[in-house]
């Protein structure tokens, strides 16, 4: 019997090699300058958090057959609600919960549009984005400030390990939560009844239907749950990464997350690798610029993540296989 792990290694040989190369590179850099290496890696992880959360959100949706290009809007609305709740109550926990619930509500709205109203899913996602841009713009008032933000918690012992410690074990709580969630989603997707049914609904909804699985219910449930992850990403942005809210602060991360999802072949762990790669690219260019090593206008540096997204899409496009039923509304006979 083929174990999932063996299959995983076989299918990801190229990435494994890339990972080894990366480890060697990091070791080399660490030898040269430990502090900067740690800083860049820690920054990579921070940059990757909203991307992987967004990618997981997109992935759960697409695995159940729903394209979600509204992740950007879901993040933005959640970031805004987290911000407001924090301003009003001063509680970071309540603010996070509010952001997650907002994400769920936005996810439900997408499910409602694509399952019940059968709006083209790409247009549905666009509606979500525009509503988020509009509402956050309308209700945002300049001058409000958050009351505090999540602070790093060093995990005893683990945080003392060189490189790994400062990068992975001296983080604020939402980062830890995200790292756990990646594995939770992976486990649920491949090893549980829910995961099997989710994948069936995304690949062949009619087959699932003929076996008594409620396709509509699965899609509603999954897109709503996935929305919570985008919501968490939004909360992360205001409560942990930035500590405040600005109009359009998501800055395209929701869309980049989709590219991360595609690059990660709709697989949570691979998507995490892709997210880290994007995070690393961003962190590296920031660092280079900071050190004055690059005499390039900042706008060109700013383009990098977007260029990288296009290159990645063009590179993997046509060679990946999305869930077969993605994008098609399921109509019961």
């Amino acid at each position: 019997m083929k174990t999932p792990w063996r299959t995983f290694f076989r299918q990801n040989r190229g990435r494994m090699i890339a990972a080894v190369a990366l480890v060697l590179f990091v070791a080399y850099a660490y030898n040269r300058n430990a502090q900067i290496t740690e800083a860049v890696l820690a920054s990579s992880l921070r940059q990757s958090i909203p991307l992987i959360l967004g990618a997981l959100c997109g992935l759960i949706g697409e695995r159940s057959g729903i394209i979600n290009i509204g992740i950007e809007g879901q993040m933005l609305m959640a970031a805004f609600v987290s911000f407001l709740v924090n301003v009003k109550t001063g509680s970071l926990i309540l603010a996070t919960i509010a952001g997650v619930l907002m994400g769920a509500l936005m996810g439900w709205a997408l499910a409602f549009m694509s399952v019940t109203l059968r709006i083209d899913q790409i247009i549905g996602g666009t509606v979500l984005n525009m509503i988020a841009f509009g509402l956050t713009g309308y209700f945002y008032q300049v001058g409000l400030a958050t009351k505090g933000k999540f602070q790093p918690i060093a995990i005893p012992l683990l945080s003392k390990i060189p490189i790994i410690g400062p990068v992975f074990f001296q983080n604020p709580p939402l980062t830890y939560l995200t790292l756990v969630l990646i594995f939770v989603v992976h486990f649920f997707l491949y090893y549980t009844r829910w995961g099997l049914r989710t994948r069936a609904v995304g690949e062949h909804p009619r087959a699932a239907d003929t076996l008594g699985i409620d396709v509509y219910r699965m899609r509603y449930m999954n897109v709503t749950l996935a929305g919570m992850l985008a919501g968490l990403a939004g909360a992360y942005l205001t409560l942990e990464a930035v500590g405040s809210f600005e109009r359009m602060m998501t800055n395209g991360r929701g869309f980049v997350a989709l590219a991360v999802m595609i690059f990660g072949k709709w697989d949570p762990l691979s998507a995490w690798g892709a997210a880290l790669l994007f995070g690393f690219a961003t962190a590296l260019q920031t660092q280079l610029q900071f050190m004055g090593a690059l005499q390039i206008p900042h706008q060109f540096i700013g383009m990098l993540p977007y260029l990288l997204t296009i290159i990645v899409l063009a590179g993997v496009g046509g060679r990946t296989r999305p869930p077969a039923a993605v994008g098609q509304p399921y109509v019961k006979e």
Partner: peptide, 15 residues
């Protein structure tokens, strides 16, 4: 009504 990317076992037990 089979999911092509599933194994025989997965298809049979689905649902």
């Amino acid at each position: 009504m089979l999911v092509p990317v599933f194994t025989v076992t997965e298809n049979i037990i689905l649902g």
